[in-house]
Structures are given as C-alpha cells and as structure tokens.
C-alpha cells in the first residue's frame, strides 16, 4: 500500500510566501519566487544525504479534510507509489516549469506566489535519501 509522507494538510509553511529568502546548498540566497529547477538540482548534487527524485503526478483526488487533496506520485526509477494529502494551495516545483499547485488562484491569493495548475503527468522535484537507493 502507498505510504503517507509530509507535508501535513494542516497549514502551509511560511517559506512559500513571496519574498521568503531561501539558502541554496552553496550558500547563495534567492527569493522563493526566483528559484529555478537548476537550483534544486545543483543543491542536491552538493548534498551528501539527499538526492533529487522525479515524482510524476499519477492521480489527484479529493482529500478527507476541507480544502485538501490527495496526490498520488510515482517516485524515482523504482516508480514507487506514494500518496500525500496536502492543502489545495500547496505548491510543488515542477521540472522546467516552476511552482504549481492544485489551486493556483488560492496559492497566489494567500502567498502572492505565482503558480501554474498542477496536473496529472507533471513531474515534480522531490527528495529521497541517497542511502535508499
């Protein structure tokens, strides 16, 4: 059966707010809205513990909590099935595209973060432990 992972659907963390300062693995500081796919890839390359995995959106269903959705991902080369329940405004970073959420209007309204619509087939940036390989 699929396993649940964070994030919790209770509230969205503060770092998605437009203007939040994000530190890359090499120490460079960027605003959350300026992050590019390469920033995640290069940061993971430097990391000894974490590696980037591609997580493809396979299904998006209504969640149990209000304003929540359950997203089923196919993760990594193993295509492991992982489900997460998140708020509809939770942004994921799509390779080559940038921030995307199930309800981009709400993400923009709450966090001023421009988002695309997250769709089945989108390939999101995710992390796994290197030792899990």
């Amino acid at each position: 059966p699929p396993v649940s992972s964070p994030p919790s659907p209770v509230a969205l963390p503060p770092f998605f707010m437009r203007g939040s300062i994000i530190q890359l693995a090499d120490g460079e500081l960027k605003r959350v809205e300026d992050l590019k796919t390469e920033d995640f890839i290069q940061s993971a390359e430097i990391s000894n513990e974490l590696k980037i995995d591609s997580s493809t959106v396979e299904r998006i269903d209504t969640g149990q909590s209000p304003n929540a959705v359950v997203i089923q991902f196919s993760v990594g080369e193993l295509k492991a099935q992982v489900c997460v329940e998140v708020l509809v405004e939770y942004p994921f970073f799509v390779f080559g595209q940038g921030w995307s959420s199930c309800c981009p209007d709400r993400t923009t309204q709450l966090f001023e973060l421009s988002c695309a619509k997250l769709c089945v087939g989108d390939v999101c940036v995710s992390l796994t432990l290197r030792s899990l390989k």
């Binding site: 990594g76 492991a80 992390l127």
Partner: peptide, 25 residues
C-alpha cells in the same frame, strides 16, 4: 542605534517534499 531586523532564511530542502519510496521488489 537600531539593530537590523533579522530576516528568516530557509534551507532549500524545506521547499521540496521528502518522498521516501517504499522498497518495491
């Protein structure tokens, strides 16, 4: 003198979901 207000800095990996796949065989 006014101390500059410290701005929170978040590590890059906070923004990425940690999806640990189950070992499938």
């Amino acid at each position: 003198n006014v101390e500059p207000r410290s701005v929170p800095v978040f590590p890059w990996h906070s923004l990425v979901p940690f999806l640990a796949p189950t070992q499938s065989d």
